[in-house]
């Protein structure tokens, strides 16, 4: 089905089946009635003076609607399955070859460690851009063992990578529920109400302090914002690869957060210096001077220490909660 199949159909049917058409037209300042008129006739009969006042030409409006409808219809296409992501090494800042080929599979968690400015963000950007030796590092990324279609680079419908950046601020004037609904609607998910409910529930399970659906997003705490974004990413994002730029440890259950993302069978790459998150990963890429200097596989001894670290963390968390509820810490 495409734009041209929709053109001869009456607006009454189209607006009911594809409500985003009305949304599209209203974003240009146009009104539309669900009558017997076909979409084609509606477009042809638009008053050119009105269009000029609205700042759009008839031809361009039709072209935009064509692109928009086809983009929306493409959301229904089955996603290309990503079974593996292969990273072929390039060069560090001094031009030394990285000499590596690393293949990642869904469900794996790879940690990226290294000091500020060492090139962690560049590595994440190379993956997001599906680099083909055309970035400053000369790295190459293969999907399912092959050079991927360049559509991955620009598609907003089928993004290869969802990125959770360090910054979790909000500036929009919306409640948590309204915001998640708007996000779900922009992804055209089926049954958005259910998704919204699920995301808010998951977020509250991750956050140290709970929040209500009508809490304005701008007044969420740092931990609550992070929890909301992680739940949102796990439940809404169809992208098979997740890049995380550090999950700060305040006010959020990091282990539960990571478990939630792993459950969705995604390839998770995470820049972190948090010992618990780092040990939960399958591998650690050590970045130095712009290049991957070393790959560390989590050993049995490390895994054992993870348990001790988690106990330590839980202890700190309990102390934090005591402080929050106004207790003293004279005995710990």
């Amino acid at each position: 089905m495409s734009y041209y199949d929709l053109l001869p159909r009456p607006l009454s049917e189209l607006l009911a089946e594809h409500p985003y058409i009305e949304d599209f037209l209203s974003s240009f300042g146009l009104e539309v009635e669900p009558g017997q008129e076909s979409l084609q006739d509606y477009l042809v009969n638009l008053n050119p003076d009105l269009l000029e006042d609205l700042g759009i030409g008839a031809e361009q409006l039709q072209q935009s609607l064509h692109d928009f409808i086809n983009g929306m219809l493409a959301l229904d296409d089955p996603l290309d399955q990503v079974n593996s992501l292969t990273l072929i090494g390039g060069f560090n800042k001094s031009g030394t070859a990285e000499n590596l080929e690393l293949t990642l599979k869904p469900g794996e968690v790879i940690c990226i460690v290294g000091p500020t400015g060492s090139g962690k963000s560049r590595l994440l950007a190379d993956i997001e851009w599906v680099a083909q030796g055309d970035t400053p590092t000369g790295r190459k990324i293969l999907i399912n063992g092959e050079v991927p279609d360049s559509k991955w680079r620009f598609s907003t419908e089928h993004k290869l990578v969802a990125q959770l950046s360090q910054n979790m601020n909000f500036v929009m004037d919306l409640s948590a529920e309204e915001f998640v609904r708007m996000h779900a609607e922009s992804r055209l998910v089926t049954e958005p109400e259910k998704k919204v409910e699920m995301i808010l529930k998951q977020a509250n399970e991750l956050a140290g302090e709970t929040f209500l659906p009508d809490t304005p997003i701008t007044s969420l705490s740092g931990g609550q914002s992070r929890a909301l974004m992680i739940a949102d990413m796990a439940c809404l994002s169809k992208s098979p690869i997740v890049l995380i730029d550090e999950i700060e440890n305040a006010g959020i259950d990091r282990k539960k957060a990571l478990d939630l993302l792993m459950r969705e069978e995604k390839i998770v790459l995470m820049a972190t210096h948090d010992p618990i998150l780092a040990l939960m990963g399958d591998k650690r890429l050590v970045i130095k001077n712009g290049g991957i200097a070393r790959i560390i596989e989590a050993s049995a001894a490390e895994r054992k220490n993870l348990i001790a670290l988690e106990e330590l963390d839980n202890k700190l968390l309990a102390l934090r909660n005591r402080i929050r509820s106004g207790e003293t810490l004279e005995s710990i």
Binding site: F68, G71, T156, N167, V171, F179, M182, H183, S186, D232
Partner: peptide, 22 residues
């Protein structure tokens, strides 16, 4: 984009996409 969250970036981009899908 560094000032706002990923989801807010996506919502904003989808609003842009709506008025200029090409």
């Amino acid at each position: 984009g560094d000032i706002v969250s990923q989801a807010e970036r996506e919502v904003f981009a989808s609003r842009v996409k709506q008025v200029n899908p090409g």
